[in-house]
Nucleic acid binder design. Structure first.
Length: 886
DNA sequence: AAACTCACG
DNA sequence: ACGTACGTGAGTTTA
């Protein structure tokens, strides 16, 4: 006999979760006729995930019937003070019920009762009739229903993710059985349902008491025997409350429901109605899932792409092709394309798609010729990855022309993803799956069987081609075609070459440093344990917090979500109180260098003696690059010990140089340019020390000689603050001055640089009008939060509106410099390689005899990358390793 | 997987 | 009055 399985869903609760899961996208999810759809959409996704997980034979979704229930009659304020359901959600509830009906799922509500009671009653009916029962809800109240036959699944963050409450799990979490949980709640009360329990009794105490006495009733039988205490007093005073709370907390498992178990049997979905509903709501994803069955009116069916598997034998078929444009995808398993195994490829030529798992075929003609012919344009997803991957096969790709990843990143980097499937879904094309879906993740990641794999690869090339025109049109519409064509595409090749070159790192230097640090760490550890009077895990903030603030009684200056903060900020302030603190700071600093840099970098040195980082070109919100595996943009420079790491970064030629050239104050120069502020422009044009100049201005001094080092330091912080979208609080914290003083600084600043103030106001205004902020090269950052009603959220968006054009324009500038630089190196046939970029700095691996040339051309190229209203200045340094290039 | 901490511009 | 600087990646512990 097939197993009978009943699934009971708390409709309101799950809809509520669904609504808030996509709350930020609220305005993006609307149907053609203006109905919000975010909750409906997510509800369906969650439902699918739950059904897949539980595989029920019977399903019922219970809804609340209204405000008035038997509980409100018992206690007037039940659920009082609760915010009423937002209208954007309540308008979606009837549609969810319609959706359920079309899906063949029973939904039900009962006057005077809550969804909880319907579920309680049906779960009991189900259990009695021999069903296994699953309950899904976001509300922990229902965990009281857990039993050996019933599991309560509490929805967690993320679609379809749940925490399963069995009686065992209940015991682990609360220390009590599901029925005892009701008694626990009687003592605790429920804030969200707005009824009190016993004063000062929270989960801990409630759990302890119920474990001891078994129930509220038994507790009160013995309450007089308790020792005199505040708790005892409270228990006695709040006895009525406790008994009322117990009634309110108890789910009615015998409510007069009119449904039978037979009514809950899962029915076949009504495809036609579903199609109509999805069309009305604009749900392309679900329409696509319905596929092409009943009608032919539907244009959104999943496309299946025909493909031909290429082999050594039939490869000749490609011989007679003379297309000017093809689409190509190279598949690898894993993100790190320098190392990830190459798994296959797909190629679309005209309307034919070819696939293969044999990447070696690519080295054979006519495939190799095609890839290396610059006159045959290739559409790809991720030029840099493709270029590097093919380079591993010793294929020098040419004519890589269109990059879907770069285009979509520029068009909108809000929801940025490096996954082709996800990007396609953003543009409503669901014919290609995500890599996560096809390959899985973590240890289980693997290439699926041939059919599925080839379908996936075919879909990829088809979609790259299909979305090319719409994406290019959007770029044009955004005036971003120039940014795309003359910056991002060329810089992708520059980065690819930098990554392939890599930078030479001496393992011996790192090993030596590692030994030294290990000795220091041992000593520090020993001293710290001695002062603490015990050994503990120094790397655990929790254990460290216990030692410092409980055992040693130091004042806890700051708290985190989970306990005491032990960050540098806090420890710095405690330094004076106990010598242990300085030693902990030293330990932390060295441990960081040891783990992240010595150990971390050693693991990344490849057999060629080099480290090949990956620059992520389509990740940041501002247009900067980021660097991973490893991150070479955060190699220490601020402390002496840290800086030593740089000694391991060396030139690849004998007696060669590491040459570094960095922009001086790019962001402030960009600000001077975009704001048009005369005073600041004047300062840069005259070559003044900008921070000293600011100090003169805000402290009302007449000559640079009057600027003290402290004034300069303060002025420097103000300049930084301006770039970040300043606040008096932030500045005061940064400088350790009073908030009032910080405020004065800022006011003086705006008085002296009125056009900067004006820029900031305009930046916010423009972001509000356009919905995005923009760099000098038209790179966009969308800022939907600029309209938020929440002060914090909105303020953050406003600061971002100020900062992004500055940080982003600086990123634009250095990208242009990199392109020009690579071009120059090629033109002059130099052996020098550009090896690293660190936001405002370029680093080169220079053979001895090219140093003089490099000294001359690098600053020239960087300074002339763009023409601003102020000069761009770049300073050079060099030495026989990165440490000496200072 | 999240929280904390800390490295960089 | 609200609670804060902007942008990143990675290692360790803890849940």
């Amino acid at each position: 006999m097939a197993q009978k399985k009943l699934l009971l869903i708390d409709g309101n609760s799950v809809a509520f979760r669904a609504f808030y899961a996509l709350y930020r996208q609220l305005d993006r999810f609307t149907s053609p006729d203006g109905l919000h759809t975010n909750a409906i959409f997510t509800f369906k996704n969650m439902l699918d995930a739950i059904m897949k997980q539980t595989k029920p034979t019977n399903v019922l979704v219970a809804f609340d019937a209204g405000k008035v229930t038997f509980r409100t009659k018992m206690y007037q304020d039940y659920k009082g003070g609760r915010q009423k359901t937002p209208s954007e959600l309540s308008e979606q509830l009837p549609v969810i019920r319609e959706l359920l009906k079309d899906l063949g799922i029973k939904s039900y509500e009962l006057k005077n009762y809550e969804a909880d009671d319907i579920i309680g009653t049906l779960s009991k009916m189900g259990e009695d009739a021999g069903y296994t029962v699953d309950v899904v809800t976001g509300d922990r109240d229902l965990t009281q229903l857990a039993s050996d036959k019933t599991t309560v699944l509490i929805t967690k963050n993320g679609v379809g993710d749940t925490e399963a409450y069995t009686p065992e799990h209940m015991k682990e979490v609360n220390g009590v059985t599901p029925t005892e949980f009701i008694d626990m709640k009687a003592l605790m009360g429920d804030n969200s349902d707005n009824y009190p329990g016993v004063t000062k009794v929270g989960p801990k105490t409630a759990s302890r008491l119920i474990q001891k006495y078994g129930s509220v009733e038994k507790l009160y039988e013995h309450v007089d025997e308790m020792k005199k205490s505040k708790l005892k007093e409270n228990l006695i005073n709040d006895k009525d409350k406790a008994f009322l709370a117990k009634k309110l907390a108890t789910i009615d498992r015998d409510s007069p429901v009119e449904v039978t178990l037979a009514d809950t049997k899962l029915q076949d979905p009504n495809i036609e109605d579903l199609r109509n509903l999805y069309e009305r709501l604009g749900f392309k994803k679900f329409l696509a899932e319905l596929g092409a069955s009943a009608t032919n009116s539907n244009k959104q069916e999943i496309e299946k792409y025909e493909y031909l598997e290429l082999t050594k034998e039939n490869i000749v078929e490609l011989d007679n092709i003379n297309e000017k444009e093809v689409t190509f995808y190279l598949a690898m398993l894993g993100d790190n394309y320098h190392l990830a195994p190459l798994e296959g490829f797909s190629l679309k030529v005209g309307n034919k798609i070819y696939v293969s798992k044999d990447v070696v075929l690519l080295q054979e003609n006519p495939l190799r010729q095609m890839l290396e012919n610059k006159n045959i344009k290739k559409n790809v997803f991720d030029i840099k990855r493709t270029y590097v991957g093919l380079n591993r096969l010793d294929i020098k790709a040419e004519g890589l022309d269109y990059d879907m990843l770069l285009a979509s990143y520029l068009v909108n980097n809000e929801n940025n993803s490096n996954d082709l499937g996800e990007v396609a879904h953003l543009y409503d094309d669901y014919s290609v799956k995500t890599d996560l879906e096809v390959y899985g993740k973590g240890k289980k990641q693997a290439v699926p069987e041939d059919g599925e794999f080839f379908e996936h690869l075919s879909a990829k090339v088809a979609v790259i081609e299909k979305l090319k025109e719409p994406l290019l049109a959007k770029l044009k519409d955004h005036e971003q075609d120039d940014l795309y064509e003359t910056i991002e595409i060329p810089v992708a090749f520059v980065l690819a070459k930098m990554e392939i070159t890599g930078i030479k790192v001496e393992a011996s230097v790192l090993n030596q440093l590692g030994n030294d640090f290990a000795v220091k760490l041992q000593e520090l550890e020993h001293k710290i344990y001695q002062q603490a009077g015990e050994e503990f895990n120094l790397n655990s903030p929790k254990q460290l917090g216990h030692i410092l603030f409980e055992k040693l009684g130091l004042p806890p200056i700051k708290k985190t979500k989970t306990g005491y903060s032990t960050s540098v900020e806090v420890l710095e302030q405690l330094k004076m109180k106990s010598p242990i603190v300085s030693e902990i700071l030293d330990y932390r600093q060295i441990a960081k260098i040891q783990n992240t840099y010595v150990k971390g970098l050693l693991e990344c040195i490849q057999p060629d003696g080099r480290i090949h980082t990956r620059y992520l070109q389509t990740l940041t919100a501002t247009g900067r690059l980021s660097s991973v595996d490893p991150n070479l943009q955060n190699i220490p420079t601020r402390t002496d010990e840290g800086k030593q790491i740089r000694k391991a970064f060396v030139p690849s030629t004998k007696d060669g140089y590491i040459f570094s050239c960095d922009y001086s104050q790019v962001e402030l120069r960009v600000l001077a340019h975009v704001s048009g502020d005369e005073h600041m422009q004047e300062a840069f044009k005259s070559g003044y020390d900008i921070h000293a100049h600011t100090a003169m201005k805000i402290f009302h001094l007449d000559s640079p000689d009057e600027v003290t080092p402290l004034m300069r330091r303060h002025a420097k912080a103000v300049n930084f603050g301006i770039v970040y979208g300043i606040s008096d609080y932030g500045l005061s914290k940064n400088l350790g001055i009073s908030r009032k003083q910080a405020k004065t600084f800022i006011e003086n600043y705006f008085e002296q640089y009125p056009q900067i103030k004006n820029y900031m106001d305009e930046a916010i205004k423009k972001a509000r009008e356009n919905g995005y902020a923009e760099t000098i090269m038209h790179r966009r950052r969308y800022l939907p939060d600029i309209h938020s009603k929440n002060f914090n959220v909105r303020s953050f968006a406003e600061r971002t509106a100020i900062n992004s054009p500055i940080q982003g324009s600086a990123a634009d500038i250095i990208k242009i410099a990199m392109i020009n630089m690579q071009k120059k190196l090629d033109e002059l046939h130099l052996k020098t390689k550009m090896v690293l970029q660190v936001h405002d700095e370029l680093i080169f691996d220079v053979p001895k005899d090219e140093l003089d040339t490099i000294k001359k051309i690098v600053p020239e190229v960087m300074q002339s990358a763009v023409k601003l209203d102020v000069p761009l200045i770049a300073d050079s340094n060099w030495g026989h390793n990165w440490y000496d290039a200072k």
